[in-house]
Simulated assay, not measured.
Amino acid sequence: MWVITLFLKGSIKMYEFSTEKEARDAFKKLKGSKFLSEIVYFNDPCFA
């Protein structure tokens, strides 16, 4: 899961995405202070 956290005009908004591509596309379009995070759970298949 990918999350964009956006700080704009004194408020905080968070957006969730399933793929990195869609998150990066949205990240480019958003205005304000923002950061992109990948959320990894301990039971994700990549740790099997």
Rank of each mutant, 00 (worst) to 15 (best):
R24H: 01
A23R: 02
V3W: 07
S18T: 08
D25W: 05
E20L: 12
G32F: 05
R24W: 00
A26N: 07
L36Q: 01
F17K: 05
D44H: 03
K28Y: 02
G32Y: 06
F7G: 08
S18M: 06
E16F: 08
K21L: 11
S33L: 07
L30Y: 02
I12W: 08
P45I: 13
S33M: 05
K28F: 00
E20W: 09
S11D: 10
L8Q: 13
L8G: 08
G10D: 13
K28T: 01
N43E: 04
F42T: 00
M14T: 15
D44Y: 03
W2F: 15
R24V: 03
W2T: 09
G10C: 11
E16A: 11
A48K: 12
E16Y: 10
F35H: 09
K21P: 02
A26K: 07
D25E: 11
V40I: 13
E38V: 10
F27A: 02
K29G: 00
E16P: 05
I39W: 04
L8M: 13
K28E: 00
S11E: 15
S11Q: 13
I12L: 14
F47R: 05
F42K: 01
F35D: 06
M14H: 13
A26Q: 05
L6V: 15
C46Q: 15
K9Y: 12
A23C: 14
F42I: 00
S37P: 04
Y41Q: 02
V3R: 13
L6M: 08
K31I: 05
S18P: 04
F7Y: 14
T5C: 13
L8E: 11
F17M: 05
F7Q: 12
S11T: 15
F47A: 03
F27G: 01
D44T: 04
L30F: 05
N43M: 01
F47V: 03
A48V: 13
E20D: 09
K21T: 10
V40T: 09
S33N: 06
S37I: 08
A23T: 07
V40A: 10
Y15S: 10
F35V: 05
D25K: 11
I4A: 06
A23V: 07
